[in-house]
Amino acid sequence: MATDFWTSTHYKQLLDQEEVDTVHSLDKERGITLEDFKLIKLHMTNYIVRLAQHVKVRQRVVATAVTYMRRAYTRRSMVEYDPRLVAPTCLYLASKAEESTVQARLLVFYIKKLYSDEKYRYEIKEILEMEMKILEALNYYLVVFHPYRALSQLLQDAGMSDSTQMIWGLINDTYKMDLILIYPPHLIALACIYVASMLKDKDNTSWFEQLRVDMNMVEKISTEILDFYDYHKTISEEKVNAAMMKLTMRM
């Protein structure tokens, strides 16, 4: 149901890591590796965030847009669905789904302003056509649950309200990974609290214990987040560009 995660289509659609990490055969033919695949999705997440800042939509719209983009690439190839078109289209679709509709021409305006590279330049018509393809790729499942939902309550309960900003930022960063496709959002929220507790040297063991959640899972997600931060340091613009270059041919 739309507000109960456990009966939602979001829950039913959660995937395994292996499924998420499968590079589409068409993309493989272009020489795109798993690392390239992840880099491009990360790069596109940043693109959505940047664009969203200009058209002024809230974080929830951004989170939904990134989720759409990542879900779409579990089923579609990047060669056929150019990420430079998919990313703004997902923001466009998410803005409608989250009741903050952004006009397509406004997106096109800011895309032109942000990128001189003409590979990024798409017209309204192309966004509208891609919108329908994305709807199809998502199998028309549009409701997405996010870790932000229960956050303030959890933080209050854990006595960590003073860390709200830090944890909010950690959650934002989880969208640079595929966690939202794999784990229930409340576990992602708890993992972020767990990471923050570690960083702040705050012992929350007893609080986590009384939550009756799968702590192995929370720790696993936490490890992935920390690994991601380590990995993130090694990312260079050249690496991203090299991965993007493999997609050069525009459809």
């Binding site: 149901m1 739309a2 789904a97 397509a104 509208l128 409701v143």
Partner: peptide, 22 residues
Amino acid sequence: QSKDGDGVSPTAIREIMLLREI
């Protein structure tokens, strides 16, 4: 298709979104 060039109507999106869940 809406004439003002704004793609699938938000009404249709909302209807699909809810009906796919319930």
